[in-house]
Design a protein around this nucleic acid. Sequence first.
DNA 1: GCGTGGTACTGTGCCTAGCGGAGTACTACG
DNA 2: CGTAGTACTCCGCTAGGCACAGTACCACGC
Lengths: 111, 111
Amino acid sequence: MDTSQLLKGVLDLAVLAVVVDEDAYGYDIVRRLRDAGLDDVGDASVYGTLRRLFQAGALSSYVVPSDEGPHRKYYAVTPAGREALRNGTKTWSHFADVLDDLLGTGRKDAA
Amino acid sequence: MDTSQLLKGVLDLAVLAVVVDEDAYGYDIVRRLRDAGLDDVGDASVYGTLRRLFQAGALSSYVVPSDEGPHRKYYAVTPAGREALRNGTKTWSHFADVLDDLLGTGRKDAA
DNA sequence: GCGTGGTACTGTGCCTAGCGGAGTACTACG
DNA sequence: CGTAGTACTCCGCTAGGCACAGTACCACGC
């Protein structure tokens, strides 16, 4: 199966979630996402998402020069971004519940 | 948030899951999916998915004339389809776990 | 001092697949 | 006969993830 399609509409959330945890720059976000289990996110996807989120006002950014490579463009989640993350998370869990139900996975436990 | 993007790559599974439960025709599948909570699946999406799955050999079909409307094209899940559903479900639950983790939803009983 | 390799970002164009909308056909009902 | 529900098809649009290529900066080895 192609995991790539699953990411659609969710990568935003993943990125926001990672950044809200701690300000981060693109390259690092990619690493963190991959570590988290999203093994095959493309870097271009993340950068693209970052740009979109930034333009949407969900992220702010500041550049930090690095002494071991090119400068890093750090991103931080804005209040609007937090809001979006909250909403998205809600949408996601509803959606995932429905899917789990449909697929009959034992994932979702009562509680 | 746009639920529509979330469906990407998952509608196949949802459709398979519904059909595996009981042979069904397009119009009915749409209804069942909507009832299940996927309120805004477009009918065109479902029909498209159906065609794709059929062509991929995951579904077989047979036409049943109806006396209260046009004929119905019923679909049934093939062994290959069952296999695909199993795989897809696995991929899904892994994916959903990762996402839940990232988003810190209390959905999963990971604790 | 030059190539190689890791880090960090940008841009372009492709492709998948879900969606809206229009169109067709059949039945039933007023 | 027109409208409405059922059932399906076709077409063009769009979002967004991806591959690929390119740029730039640093460090290391030769």
